[in-house]
């Protein structure tokens, strides 16, 4: 229960950061995708029904705040979760460098999902042509942030587990 609350809080926090403070960073149009990092963390470490719902809701919140089409990011984040979960069943990924690599790849999966849906259903001219640069930069930044975010989440998680131990 406490862990769910921690993740709920983390979810609120990353959405808040992503819609406000992270825009202060001198990264041009790129917004560091902490939401993706959180989804990947869940996919790697907490592949539960709650995490699936959480990933969907985080994607949905991006849609609510940003996208003109509801469901686009919700789909992309759910797909990311699924892909990461499936990969975590095959590969043991608990090294910071490897987790950063997973986030990097997950960002590409998200980008591919958005391009696919955008091209098939939204008919936006030339959407896929210019986005490769953005996907790369976004993936790179997310991968760079991933070890720190993972570490914070693990600390929070282990703290809660320590508190729970005496009970």
């Amino acid at each position: 229960m406490k862990l769910s609350l921690l993740f709920l809080l983390a979810g609120f926090l990353v959405v808040l950061l992503q819609t406000t403070f992270l825009h202060l960073l001198p990264l041009g149009p790129i917004v560091p995708d902490l939401i993706l990092v959180l989804c990947v963390y869940w996919g790697l470490n907490h592949p539960t029904v709650g995490a699936v719902l959480g990933s969907f809701l985080l994607g949905y919140s991006v849609d609510v705040f940003s996208s003109p089409v509801l469901g686009l990011n919700a789909f992309a984040m759910s797909l990311v979760f699924l892909a990461v979960y499936l990969s975590s069943r095959c590969i043991w990924i608990h090294n910071p460098l490897l987790s950063a690599a997973v986030v990097f790849l997950a960002s590409w999966i998200k980008g591919a999902a958005l391009i696919m849906v955008g091209t098939l259903f939204l008919a936006v001219d030339g959407l896929w042509m210019g986005v490769l640069k953005y996907i790369f930069l976004e993936a790179l930044i997310a991968a760079m942030l991933a070890p720190a975010v993972f570490s914070l989440l693990r600390r929070g998680q282990s703290y809660l587990e320590e508190v729970r131990m005496p009970l």
Partner: peptide, 13 residues
């Protein structure tokens, strides 16, 4: 009061 949460979409609240 808020900006876009995504690089892909340009919006604010």
């Amino acid at each position: 009061i808020g900006n876009s949460a995504s690089t892909w979409f340009h919006s604010f609240v």
